[in-house]
Amino acid sequence: METHELYHELYSEEIGKTARTRLLAWRIVLGVLAAGLVLGMVLFCVNADPIEPGTQQLKATVFLVLGGWLGLFLLFHSLSPASRENKHILRMRQEDGETETYEGRIRCGEKPEYIPGSVPVFRVRLEDDPHDGKALLRKSAAKSFPREGQLKLQIKNGFIIAWQEAER
């Protein structure tokens, strides 16, 4: 009999800790960026030439515009997703809910879906489910998840919380 991969837990304590650390890291990065912008502006103002402030003012403006754009980019593309991910994982770990088990063929969607205010997910079709069911797979957990195959899933509140390859 062939051996299969180990049981994959998608909302383990370790995963929760990683999500918290990632969120904290991005908060620190943005905090440092904000502090840097403030400090930079203070320095520009202190070094301003009262007779001909134009050049310093232009530099300060460019500095603040670009710094702010970088901050906005990191906020929307790094901190915000990290925050949503952390919130989602925490909620899934803390929430009560019935855990269902499914064993059978699955087919994972090709493109992730983006639900406002939540984490990006893949829609996984449970092909052997008599009710033609679907489950959601957190995008960040999808790297090692097979596109299709025979799997054993644990599903809670519509999300796949653990999986392993089904025994043949």
Binding site: M41, G68, W69, F73
Partner: peptide, 30 residues
């Protein structure tokens, strides 16, 4: 997925804010 171009108005708003803020600050210190 929301792309960076969906937020162009926000980036432009920041640029405007930055210009006005810098003008005000420099007016204050000079």
């Amino acid at each position: 997925k929301r792309s960076i171009f969906d937020r162009v108005p926000l980036y432009l708003l920041w640029a405007l804010f930055a210009v006005l803020l810098t003008m005000g600050l420099f007016q204050l210190v000079t």
